[in-house]
């Protein structure tokens, strides 16, 4: 049997308290590790909180300045990250060691508070034992900010997804602060291929279409979705109902495992719904955490089941990318 063991960490990050949030990550990472998981997934902006507003400016981590700890640094190799537009610049072991030394000499509390770049240290360290997917505010060398998610593995940054579709309507104002990502990357993990879509990304069906056609078997959706809308004789909030219908569609029609990790907790009266869950390639919900409460879900995915589903219903095999491309060109050049 081709099994993957992973954990969904449904946490309530505190907006702006990066150190506190990072500590909570480490606690959940340890629990996931103890449960035998090879990967633990946190929600969108799990290290920073969601409705940051102007605090986006204070919460950003610049990956180019990141200090990788010694254990992790030993494992750092020259490599590119499989996401369009982003290149890992943590590629020089000596340089990293020097930087690390400088920080140690200057190890006063104020410096630590000033720099968010060490926030990922603990996670990078732990990623030698278990792969970690976590959300954070990324800033780049041009001082742009992104709603980003990193996948850490083996003490290294394996993949970065910069959220592409930034909701800026109703209660959301992401485009006011963040720059759009440019790609839906696919990366190798746990012997298969995965893609990360962040919240609103998944509401655009083109994103999962791209991901599965690039080979993704696991569609990992991290989100910060507020609970909203009540309906008669429905034990779910309207927003939750819509999400679960969407996840089922993606899982069934793209014959993939859909792993949804949503946050909980409140920010200025807005409560995030939780209900992190996994949908199988037959469109059914296999695992689910409670709504509105923190929790860790340790699960096993069977890739043999995915192979079976893809053989029985070969929608992806028959997908005609040429027609799609031709039609898309027609639409764009209209």
């Amino acid at each position: 049997m081709d099994l993957i063991k992973l954990s969904l960490a449904q946490i309530a990050p505190v907006p702006g308290l990066l150190t506190h949030n990072a500590e909570k990550h480490l606690e959940y990472i340890d629990r996931a590790k103890q449960a035998g998981s090879e990967l633990v997934i946190f929600p969108e902006l799990s290290l920073t909180g969601y409705f940051l507003k102007d605090a986006v400016y204070d919460s950003a981590i610049n990956l180019n300045d990141i200090i990788v700890n010694n254990i992790a640094a030993d494992k750092v190799k020259d490599r590119n990250i499989g996401n369009g537009g982003y290149r890992n610049t943590i590629n020089n072991k000596n340089e990293i060691k020097n930087k690390n030394h400088e920080i140690k000499d200057n190890n006063c509390e104020l410096d630590l508070k000033k720099s968010n770049d060490r926030i990922l240290d603990g996670l990078l360290d732990k990623s030698g034992e278990i792969a970690i997917i976590a959300g954070f505010v990324e800033s780049d060398e041009d001082f742009n900010f992104y709603n980003s998610t990193c996948c850490l593995s083996g003490g290294n940054i394996l993949h970065i997804h910069r959220k592409v579709y930034l909701p800026t309507y109703g209660m959301f104002e992401e485009m006011r602060y963040f720059k759009q990502g440019k790609a839906f990357g696919v990366f190798d993990i746990l012997g298969t291929k995965a893609s990360i879509l962040t919240c609103e990304d998944a509401w655009h069906l083109s994103s999962s279409y791209i991901a599965v056609n690039k080979g993704a078997k696991l569609i990992i959706i991290n989100s910060a979705s507020p609970a909203r809308g009540i309906e008669e004789e429905n034990d779910k909030f309207s927003s939750v109902k819509m999400w679960e219908e969407l996840l089922s569609v993606i899982a069934f029609y793209y014959k993939s495992y859909v792993i949804y990790v949503n946050r909980v907790g409140f920010e200025d009266g807005i409560g995030f719904s939780g209900g992190s869950c996994v949908f199988s390639p037959n469109g059914t919900k296999d695992y689910c955490l409670d709504y509105l409460d923190e929790g860790l879900l340790n699960i096993e995915l069977n890739l043999d089941f995915l192979k079976n589903e893809r053989f029985k219903t070969p929608i992806l095999r028959d997908e005609n990318l040429d027609i799609t491309l031709k039609e898309l060109n027609g639409i764009i050049n209209r």
């Binding site: 609970a227 009540i230 309906e231 008669e232 004789e233 429905n234 034990d235 779910k236 909030f237 409140f266 009266g269 409560g271 709504y291 509105l292 409460d293």
Partner: peptide
């Protein structure tokens, strides 16, 4: 049916 979720949301709030 929907009371359970609303109640939990308000208490957590």
């Amino acid at each position: 049916t929907n009371f359970k979720n609303i109640n939990k949301l308000l208490m957590n709030f």
